[in-house]
């Protein structure tokens, strides 16, 4: 399933959309960035409440398909600009990480 289709189904609000046709697979939830780098897999949907600029570097290096910011977290303009320049997919949602993961699980084949 593509990031764009998933975002539409879960009614996520786009913050930066680099490539919504990218396919995502599996979910990782976490806010400690080294933990995410150690455990998240390529193409994951990464749910976090962390909003500083380092999430962009981590998403790029781990090569996750999309960052979903939970609990209504948003990004400062400078972070948004960096993410846009790097082509990272970032969405936000008012839902909790648990609610998002539950819905994402229902979308997995």
């Amino acid at each position: 399933m593509t990031v764009g289709e998933m975002a539409k189904t879960l009614q996520l609000t786009p913050i930066t959309v680099g490539d919504e046709s990218r396919t995502w697979s599996g979910v990782y939830i976490g806010d400690l960035l080294s933990w995410v780098m150690g455990r998240a897999a390529c193409d994951n949907a990464w749910i976090t409440i962390m909003s500083n600029v380092n999430i962009v570097a981590v998403a790029t290096l781990v090569d996750v398909a999309v960052i979903i910011l939970a609990e209504g977290v948003t990004l400062e303009e400078s972070v948004r600009n960096t993410a846009a320049a790097k082509g990272v997919n970032i969405y936000t949602s008012e839902k909790t990480a648990y609610e998002l993961a539950k819905e994402l699980a229902g979308l997995q084949p």
Partner: peptide
């Protein structure tokens, strides 16, 4: 508070 300092840096480098 920036999401680092979890004590995973060097272990990740080894991993």
């Amino acid at each position: 508070s920036l999401g680092f300092g979890a004590g995973m840096g060097l272990p990740n480098m080894k991993r």
